[in-house]
């Protein structure tokens, strides 16, 4: 029986958009206020999960052709690369630094290399959460 879930789909397009924006805000706000890579990754996977619940698994696989298993080694490699990059400057492993840069719109912004490590955490969290949920959703009854 085909049921009509127009209200769920319309609200999902709006709320998933808001959630992705909020996830990006949480990811960038993590240096000076609550937030960071972990919560940002959880919010992103919440938005993708909302899309999966509203549109079904076949449509979202066409919309987002991402294999979420690939994101886990990408995130771990990013975190490892930011740790190993400190060897280029003859400092111990995982030494981080920061600097002030000028951008046309934002003005002077403090950029830290800890954000790249946070990006690795973000990718790993998104990949592992979505892999867990989709693996449980795809199981077959024996």
């Amino acid at each position: 029986m085909q049921q009509n879930n127009l209200i769920l789909r319309t609200t999902t397009t709006l709320i998933a958009f808001l959630l992705l924006g909020f996830a990006i805000y949480l990811f960038f706000a993590g240096h000076n206020s609550p937030g960071g890579g972990f919560v940002g990754g959880l919010m992103t996977s919440g938005a993708v999960l909302l899309l999966y619940m509203a549109y079904g698994i076949e449509s979202v696989d066409k919309m987002l052709p991402i294999n979420f298993r690939i994101l886990i080694p990408i995130g771990l490699a990013t975190a490892l690369a930011t740790g190993a990059g400190s060897f280029l400057f003859n400092v111990p492993f995982l030494t981080h630094t920061f600097g002030y840069f000028y951008f046309p719109i934002f003005g002077e912004v403090e950029l830290a290399t800890a954000m790249l490590f946070d990006l690795g955490v973000y990718f790993t969290v998104v990949g592992s959460v979505m892999t867990t949920i989709l693996t449980i959703a795809n199981d077959q009854k024996v």
């Binding site: 049921q3 769920l8 709320i15 959630l19 909020f22 919010m43 919440g46 999960l49 909302l50 999966y52 619940m53 509203a54 079904g56 698994i57 949920i133 989709l134 959703a137 795809n138």
Partner: peptide, 21 residues
Amino acid sequence: VLAFISTIAFSKFIEKGGVII
């Protein structure tokens, strides 16, 4: 957001028997 997502998941489970599929 979490209350919204969990309510949607519960109501899809009650209505259609599965959360995603």
